[in-house]
């Protein structure tokens, strides 16, 4: 089943007198249970697209359907159903937390949805365990590292029991360790809980674990396929103003200098083996 379907979606900003087209006729569908990484350089329209996935923004033209419901629907009930099904996490974890105690912050979503008290307690326990932050439940968010804060933000969304997680550049402000923590949590949720994940980023190495990579450039989708295919197309990567991970760059350079090394290698061990096999 398709979780989210975008049909010729465009979004225009009104900036002074000029119309800025941030997203230009994008059609895309996201399969339930898949792990999709949406890549794009700054200004490629990927954040605008992310906000249209749960109706925070409504497209200027075209339509977005979430489990067969239109995000442009005016009924509050439908709007909130869509938002509780597609949970969105943003870039700066500090700007997403509303309480000075972690467990209270995680409980905020279910409280808003009017979930009975006993079930909120269960959900908070489960969500904190799912992101590995149960030991910090009574702590203050200001004492946590960036990666930990972002995991708490994920728990806050998980407690609403969404079917899809959308991460709008949620790793952009984190150090490599924090990024690895968050990516680990996402992979686990996708594998163990069957959570559909849409991860928006400009770090190419983060799509290694994904089923599918979508690349946006200047408001359009310019690539849609497996990460392996994307890594094997250095020209496209460059056109989209992205940067290949170092391992892939080495493999590409070796390939271009005429050596029998395959394009699109993302794993260090794989590269090592390819090099060892050279005569």
């Amino acid at each position: 089943m398709q979780a989210i379907v975008l049909d010729k979606v465009s979004y225009q900003y009104q900036l002074d007198d000029t119309n800025l087209v941030a997203v230009n006729e994008v059609s895309l569908s996201i399969e339930e249970g898949s792990f999709v990484v949406l890549l794009g350089a700054n200004g490629s329209g990927k954040s605008t697209l992310a906000k249209m996935l749960n109706g925070l923004l409504v497209p200027s033209s075209g339509e977005v359907r979430v489990f067969d419901e239109l995000t442009s629907c005016e009924e509050d009930e439908v709007v909130y159903r869509i938002r509780s099904r597609v949970g969105e996490i943003f870039q700066n974890p500090d700007n997403q937390m509303v309480a000075s105690v972690i467990e209270d912050d995680v409980a905020f979503g279910p409280e808003n949805l009017g979930i009975p008290h006993e079930e909120i307690v269960e959900r908070v326990d489960w969500a904190l365990r799912a992101v590995g932050m149960e030991a910090f439940r009574s702590h203050s968010p200001s004492k946590l590292s960036g990666g930990q804060k972002q995991r708490v933000a994920i728990a806050g969304i998980l407690a609403m029991r969404p079917k899809v997680l959308v991460l709008d550049e949620s790793t952009a402000m984190l150090d490599p360790r924090g990024r690895a923590e968050v990516m680990g949590v996402l992979a686990q949720l996708n594998k163990n809980e069957g959570m559909t994940v849409v991860h928006i980023t400009h770090h190419m190495d983060e799509c290694v674990a994904a089923d599918r990579a979508v690349v946006m450039s200047e408001g359009r989708v310019v690539f849609d396929g497996t990460p392996k295919e994307l890594f094997s197309d250095p020209a496209l990567v460059e056109r989209a103003h992205l940067e290949l991970p170092p391992v892939t760059q080495v493999a590409t350079l070796l390939h271009e200098s005429g050596l029998p090394v395959a394009l699109g290698i993302t794993d260090r061990e794989e590269l090592l083996e390819a090099i060892c096999r050279l005569k």
């Binding site: 938002r83 509780s84 969105e88 008290h117 307690v121 969304i157």
Partner: peptide, 22 residues
């Protein structure tokens, strides 16, 4: 960003907001 985050977490969704702490 906080406003987007509040919307994402269904602030004001239910007229009967429940409580985590009683």
């Amino acid at each position: 960003e906080l406003a987007f985050a509040l919307d994402s977490r269904c602030y004001n969704a239910s007229p009967k907001r429940t409580r985590y702490r009683i």
